[in-house]
């Protein structure tokens, strides 16, 4: 069965995120009262697996391989059968 996974990769808390700062500066300039803006990444992918636990395990292994544990954290944000996404 095919699954659709959404993986989030973000900088760890406490690590300076100059992209987030730049975005925050612009948002503030637009009049929004926001703080602690952080910019991360979203990876979406489709994968074949025999079961949901297997799909979850594979998606997490991929997230682990792609994130850099020195400065990033990852999370499997969503995992759904592909047909529910389409």
């Amino acid at each position: 069965m095919k699954y659709h996974a959404t993986i989030l990769i973000e900088l760890k808390d406490g690590i300076l995120d100059p992209q987030g700062r730049a975005v925050e500066g612009v948002l503030t300039g637009l009049g929004y009262r926001v703080e602690n803006v952080r910019v991360g990444r979203v990876l979406e992918l489709e994968l074949e697996a025999a079961s949901e636990p297997e799909a979850r395990e594979t998606a997490l292994a991929i997230a682990r391989a792609l994130a850099n544990p020195v400065m990033e954290v990852y999370a499997l944000e969503a995992l759904r059968p592909l047909q529910e996404v389409l």
Partner: peptide
């Protein structure tokens, strides 16, 4: 080398972007 774990730490975006 840092990404491969052959050296510790990481190189992040320059502070001034």
């Amino acid at each position: 080398l840092t990404e491969a774990g052959l050296l510790p730490g990481a190189l992040l975006a320059n502070t001034n972007l």
